[in-house]
Amino acid sequence: MTRADYLIVLFAALLLPYLYVSQWSSSEVGTTAAIMNGDKTIAVSLAHDHTLTIDGALGPTIIKIEAGKIRFATSPCLGKQCIHSGWLQQTGEFAACLPNRISVAVLGDAPRFDSINF
């Protein structure tokens, strides 16, 4: 190993904890979810149970909301990775179906609105 090798290993060793802390630090129960289909985003409340059908690039994806949690229920993609992601509940939890270009992100109250009127 050369000196440059050690430096890059050190860099990686510092980068990983930084990424975990910066991306995963907040985790509370989310109140809404942002569902992105292509370049359109819709916000749905996790307060009410329901089932959404979203037409993605490949076909319909079914997303379920139940007891404050959200998940991909069916998807026309091959890998079904989105379905294996399971139920999402904490703010920041995220699942994506790249082939069908649909993603789900759980959000807390704060980022849902750009401004509050009272």
């Binding site: 370049d39 985003t41 916000a43 849902r112 609105f113 750009d114 401004s115 509050i116 009127n117 009272f118």
Partner: peptide
């Protein structure tokens, strides 16, 4: 511009509308 809960919004937020919550 939101002054004590009353606001006026112009434009949009990167191609999506501004979202306003009413308390």
């Amino acid at each position: 511009v939101n002054a004590g809960g009353d606001l006026r919004a112009i434009g949009s937020k990167n191609e999506r509308p501004w979202r306003i919550g009413i308390r």
